[in-house]
Design a protein around this nucleic acid. Structure first.
Length: 103
DNA sequence: CGTGTGACGCGAG
DNA sequence: CCTCGCGCCACAC
């Protein structure tokens, strides 16, 4: 697994674990909250290689589209989100404006 | 040490 | 609406 700064990684874990059910966050938002707005892609790396118990399904890109490398594919991702009450359209996109969450 | 790539973002054209 | 280019960083080759 890629080596990421422990502090940054820790912050990402904390932020992601605090995302309430039925809400989503963007990679850039998380990165900014962790003090590294330029490292949005790294959040993705952490998401891919990081702990599975965190609600990564609530993390989407700025346009509201679901992540591409999610285990099980976007369909699985979509189902998980809909189970939480998040509306996902057929383009695998969520209403980012309404569902975006910020602490 | 140069180049390409990535679960990304944003502005410019 | 689209594509293109640049931004920053970590990693593989």
């Amino acid at each position: 697994m890629p080596r990421v700064d422990n502090e940054f990684k820790n912050k990402v874990y904390k932020v992601v674990s605090q995302i309430p059910q039925g809400r989503v966050m963007t990679y850039g938002q998380i990165a900014a909250l962790c003090g590294a707005a330029w490292a949005a892609w790294e959040v993705g790396q952490i998401a891919h290689f990081g702990p599975e118990y965190l609600p990564w399904q609530r993390v989407v890109n700025k346009k509201g589209y679901l992540a591409n490398g999610f285990p099980g594919g976007k369909e699985h991702h979509k189902i998980l989100l809909e189970t939480e009450g998040i509306v996902v359209n057929e383009e695998y996109q969520v209403n980012i404006k309404e569902l975006i969450w910020q602490p």
